[in-house]
């Protein structure tokens, strides 16, 4: 059976797949990258914490011009997942302003990036719309 690897190390391919953050044990600040210390309180110890899969689209753009080799258009956004902000694309949606809106409820979804020469499959993530009432502007 071929192996699967996540696009980034903070995507955990469990059932269901989810993101994890490094949380500062002293002040609770959360990060997704490899850390040297906490930028908020300068402490050096972190716990791994799971991030909610459900969230609200706090901001987005529909990118029509990007670097070479990047397929456009795509929707880039910031999702508020239970108080933790996550950067990700909005996927499984028509990439236009009629189908994507601020405050839209979204949920983590994964997709295949393809397989490499060893047969290893890379799995990426994004956020897809789910049914529900959008958060009204001003009440975010």
């Amino acid at each position: 059976m071929s192996e699967r690897v996540p696009l980034v190390d903070y995507l955990v391919l469990d059932d269901p797949p989810h993101l994890v953050a490094k949380q500062c044990t002293q002040c609770g600040a959360r990060y997704f990258d490899r850390r040297n210390a906490c930028a908020s309180c300068f402490a050096e110890e972190f716990d791994s914490v799971p991030i909610d899969n459900d969230g609200v689209l706090r901001s987005f753009t529909i990118v029509a011009h990007a670097g070479p080799g990047i397929e456009v258009p795509f929707v880039a956004g910031v999702v508020d997942c239970g108080g933790t902000s996550v950067r990700g694309n909005v996927i499984n949606v028509e990439p236009d302003a009629e189908h994507v809106s601020l405050g839209m409820p979204v949920r983590l979804a994964t997709y295949s990036l393809g397989v490499d020469d060893n047969g290893t499959e890379a799995i990426g993530f994004g956020y897809e719309p789910v049914d529900g009432e959008p958060t009204e502007p001003g009440r975010a």
């Binding site: 696009l7 903070y10 753009t61 990118v63 990007a66 456009v72 880039a76 950067r87 694309n89």
Partner: peptide
């Protein structure tokens, strides 16, 4: 981020027009 492939375009955008578009849109959300 321990990325196995480029993330620009897959996990958001690094382009300036896209970053600042989100800055303005976030104001609209608030």
């Amino acid at each position: 981020f321990g990325a196995v492939a480029p993330t620009d375009g897959r996990i958001g955008t690094n382009t300036m027009p896209g970053v600042f578009a989100q800055v303005g849109m976030e104001y609209g959300h608030r």
